[in-house]
Amino acid sequence: MSANTSFLEVRGLTRRFGGLTAVNNVDLDLAEGEFLSIIGPNGAGKTTLFNLMTGHDDPDGGTVTFMGRDITRLSPERLAALGIARTFQHGRVFANLSVMDNVLVGAHVRFKAVRPAWPFPLNLLGPVAEVALALIRPPSVVAEEQRMREEALKILSRFGDRLLPRLDNPTYSLSYANRRRVEIGRALALGPKLLLLDEPTAGMNQTETAEMQALIGDLKKSGLTILLIEHKLDMVMQLSDRVVVMDNGTVIANGKPAEVRNDPAVIEAYLGHRRADRPEASVPEAAQ
């Protein structure tokens, strides 16, 4: 495997909820520029793994290293500053903010007005400075805001005509699929080094899924490192450099899409499991 060029390195990660071990001693490596998909039946622990990697949940054991730096238990806001962006399985847009504002919040960590680069004792005045800059708005701040808006427009234009006509609409008024798009736009605005997508096409119809797949393919081409959780196997097989299969909190297979597809253990544990439990492949509820 590509352990020597490890961009993201997960070792022995474990998370228990009461008696249930949602993530059990998981190891994972990801090289820069790689596209890795995580698949597995409902309740396998995929989202929990994302939560552990992005600081939303604390592991009971194990480490996460990102670009040579131990990031275990760092807060989500620190991780965002390091260039890790994620989307959420059920969608978490800022409902009362406009489409444009949602995307601009994604760029939060890149605003200089947020964190003026002042030396030590003065940096304690950070919040005061931030308020002052927001009120006074010197030309540099205005220019920065303008720049970010243009960039946000560029990001939003990736979704064709889906979002551009609705720039000023609050996101609660958007369709479900459009909210998912806004979330991805927001993640891109962070200028991420690593992008984690949790079921970006859940609840989308075939056309919408195809569109999304094309977009993610473009992102991959641009060299972005991506971790994808997805139930739609066709999409996974077409996009991924490598696929990791989880079941009951553990990694049961790891390899090229073709290898994984034909791994009998995967067919047994993943597809068999699914067939036994639930015939529907895209039921979002967790199956315990």
Binding site: T54, H56, P76, E77, F94, A95, N102, V105, R186
Partner: peptide, 18 residues
């Protein structure tokens, strides 16, 4: 924008460095 984002969804807001 930042403050309202935090109100609408604090978890997502943290994910974006707030």
């Amino acid at each position: 924008r930042t403050l309202r984002a935090m109100r609408d969804d604090d978890i997502a807001a943290r994910s974006y460095g707030i």
